[in-house]
Computed example of a mutant assay.
Amino acid sequence: MGRWAPSQSREWHWTWLTRTVPIRRSLTSTEPGSSSSSSTNPTSSWAATKAASNPTAVPPSFTVYSTDDVGGRHYMIGETRSRPPLYAVSLHAGWKGPDVELHSGPSESEPPPLATAKRGSLFGDGATVQLPGPDGGGGMVKEKVDASNDFPYPSYGFAIEVEQGQQREEFRWVHIGMRKGWQLARLSTSEVVAVFDWTTLTKKELYFQFVGHGGTGILGERWAIMAVITAIRAWDRVKRKQASGAV
């Protein structure tokens, strides 16, 4: 299984089979020794060019942080807490609407959502994700997310078009060992293409990073959106189970 070990350079390493990939937690203004300069934050210039180049693009690494004092159902996606948020995230309970809404901008009132995820059945952790279609025509297309029966943490798999829609490939989120870390594996190559973890005490911050070919943009924007919303939903499912004592 995986091994989690902190290093002195603010990088956290997972070992998945024989592979080690780094995830860099975004520095915030409240952390000792943090800096907002581009020399210490490789994504610092990303938001400045987002609106002009691709308004629905996803940054290579980011933090999902709570905007609630209590409850923990409203979140923002941003490079760091100290920078302007990029997208709003809403988490819901019940069957009338989606479990997760990834909004098109930093306001929950901005229609339409960039993507949504809804539990697929009363029993099991599978889901249906709606996100823009591969043809870019503006319509929303449904994609299935399956869940394994592994206890206490199921893995979550999906298939989606990659590399400008030239082919569909399968990917799976897998929990690593006894820690909080998760890795997204590209099953055709066994490569890790994204990772996330979260804070232990508050459970109100998720740290996400694309790695390997996932960080190059070659897999496409639709794949990136799918990776993000399935990660947030997996995180939310774990938090709910922990709150109920099921994990």
Rank of each mutant, 00 (worst) to 15 (best):
G72D: 03
G72E: 01
I218T: 06
H213D: 15
S35H: 06
N54G: 00
T216K: 14
R233T: 04
W46Y: 03
S38Y: 06
D125C: 14
E11T: 13
T80Y: 01
A159F: 09
H175F: 04
P59F: 00
N41W: 10
A246E: 08
V89Q: 00
S82E: 05
V58F: 03
S155W: 07
T199C: 03
W95A: 12
R25D: 09
E163V: 02
G217T: 08
A115I: 05
W235C: 13
H74W: 12
T116M: 03
V129G: 15
S148A: 02
A147M: 03
K50V: 08
V247D: 08
Y65K: 12
L187R: 09
T49G: 06
G157Y: 06
A147C: 07
G136S: 07
Q130S: 13
A48R: 15
G181M: 04
I160V: 12
Q8D: 07
G217E: 07
D150Y: 06
E143K: 15
E110I: 14
H213Q: 15
Y207M: 12
G245F: 03
T40L: 11
V141S: 11
A5F: 12
E110A: 15
F171W: 13
G97V: 02
P106G: 11
E205Y: 10
Q130G: 08
G157C: 07
S9F: 10
P85L: 00
K239V: 12
Q183D: 05
P42Y: 06
D99V: 02
A127S: 15
I23K: 04
Y207T: 01
P55N: 07
V70C: 15
I176M: 02
D99R: 04
P59K: 01
G133A: 14
S148W: 00
H103Q: 05
F62W: 04
S244T: 14
P132Q: 07
T128W: 11
V141D: 09
G126K: 01
V89A: 07
K144C: 11
V247G: 10
G138K: 12
G97F: 10
F158E: 08
I77H: 02
G124M: 14
S61D: 01
S29M: 01
W46R: 02
V192T: 02
